[in-house]
Every structure is written in structure tokens, then in C-alpha cells.
Amino acid sequence: MGENILTYINAFIVGGIICAIGQILIDKTKLTTARILVIFVTAGAILGSLGIYQKLVDIGGAGATVPLTGFGYNLVKGTFKDVESTGLLGAFTGGVKAAATGITAAIFFGYLTSVAFRPKAKR
């Protein structure tokens, strides 16, 4: 049980720090959402390929995998796995394979919800 609580605390801290870094980028550089997300997924992929992000995942668990950097890390992890087992072709198969659930869920649920709901005016 004690170990369980620790995973939550670690997830909170690591995830929180990653988001706070995003906030600095937004406030200091006036970047838009699209740019922030692209930067984070790319940064995750690069840190993942350097083996750095794995350490963050080991510590933070979901705190490192839930932010979009984790998506980039996941792409690279899958790519490396396939490259190691099937060679160069793996560079083109591994990434999307590993991220398949996320991509498919995002498209499918995204489609369903946008068909079902309407945007509401802000005041």
C-alpha cells in the first residue's frame, strides 16, 4: 500500500513539473497550443532516443507517460524495439505500432464526440 501511494506522489510531481515547463514556454514565448504539443512530442522522442526519458518513466510512471512527451517517448521506444528485431524496416513500423492504441482512440473517440456535441459560446 505504501508503495502504491508513492507512485501517486511521484506521478503528481513529475507530471506537474513537465506541465509547469510547458507553462513557462507559453507565457514567455507566446507559443500556441499546436506548437507546444509539437515541441513536447518531439522533445519526448529525442529524450527517449537518448535513453533519458526512460529514467523519468521509471521514477514518475504515469507522470511521465501521460504528458505528450510520453507519446513521443513511446513512438521511439517502439521504433527501437522493431529496429532491433527486424532491422531498418523497424524504423517505419515500430513507432506507429506502439502508439496504435493512442492514435486510434484519439481519432475514433474524437470523431464520435465531435459528432455528438456542439460547441458552446463563452461569456
Binding site: I26, T32, T33, P119, K120, A121, K122
Partner: peptide, 9 residues
């Protein structure tokens, strides 16, 4: 700007 439901500040 952005879609109304996009969570931006």
C-alpha cells in the same frame, strides 16, 4: 483564433 472548446489561456 482557436476553436471555442480548445483549452487555452
Amino acid at each position: 483564433r482557436f476553436p471555442l472548446e480548445l483549452g487555452t489561456q
